[in-house]
Simulated assay, not measured.
Amino acid sequence: MSGRDGSDSSQEGVAVPAPHKHSARRAELISATRRVAGRSGLNATNVRAVAAEASVSAGSVLYYFSSFDDLMYATVEGVLEEMYEHRRVIAEQEPDPIRRLAKLVEAGVPDEISDHLRMAYESIPLLREQPQYRPLHRSIVERQVSLYRSTIEIGAALGVFRPAAELTVIARNIVALEDAYDLYPLIGLEHGATTYRANILSYASLALGCEITAD
Rank of each mutant, 00 (worst) to 15 (best):
residue 57 S to C: 08
residue 63 Y to L: 12
residue 73 Y to Q: 02
residue 95 P to W: 12
residue 69 D to P: 08
residue 85 E to H: 14
residue 28 E to R: 08
residue 178 E to R: 01
residue 138 R to C: 14
residue 115 D to E: 09
residue 184 Y to F: 13
residue 182 D to Y: 02
residue 214 A to I: 13
residue 119 M to L: 12
residue 205 S to R: 02
residue 138 R to V: 08
residue 35 R to S: 09
residue 147 L to H: 05
residue 58 A to W: 04
residue 9 S to A: 12
residue 18 A to S: 15
residue 21 K to N: 11
residue 192 G to L: 06
residue 53 E to S: 00
residue 176 A to V: 12
residue 116 H to S: 12
residue 41 G to W: 12
residue 162 R to N: 14
residue 52 A to G: 07
residue 165 A to D: 10
residue 12 E to Y: 10
residue 1 M to R: 13
residue 126 L to A: 04
residue 38 G to H: 05
residue 203 Y to M: 09
residue 197 R to Q: 11
residue 31 S to E: 11
residue 85 E to I: 12
residue 57 S to N: 10
residue 76 V to N: 01
residue 50 V to R: 00
residue 80 L to G: 08
residue 166 E to P: 10
residue 88 R to N: 12
residue 6 G to L: 09
residue 189 L to Y: 06
residue 104 L to S: 05
residue 214 A to V: 10
residue 44 A to I: 07
residue 192 G to M: 07
residue 22 H to T: 12
residue 138 R to Y: 13
residue 19 P to R: 06
residue 180 A to F: 15
residue 35 R to P: 06
residue 93 Q to E: 15
residue 125 P to L: 03
residue 61 V to T: 05
residue 112 E to Y: 05
residue 79 V to N: 00
residue 49 A to F: 01
residue 45 T to Y: 02
residue 91 A to M: 07
residue 16 V to W: 14
residue 47 V to F: 09
residue 50 V to Q: 00
residue 175 V to M: 04
residue 20 H to Y: 14
residue 29 L to K: 01
residue 12 E to W: 10
residue 77 E to I: 04
residue 121 Y to E: 05
residue 48 R to S: 15
residue 103 K to C: 13
residue 68 F to P: 03
residue 93 Q to P: 11
residue 147 L to M: 07
residue 106 E to S: 08
residue 118 R to V: 12
residue 110 P to R: 13
residue 19 P to V: 14
residue 177 L to A: 07
residue 166 E to I: 12
residue 6 G to T: 08
residue 36 V to T: 02
residue 8 D to E: 14
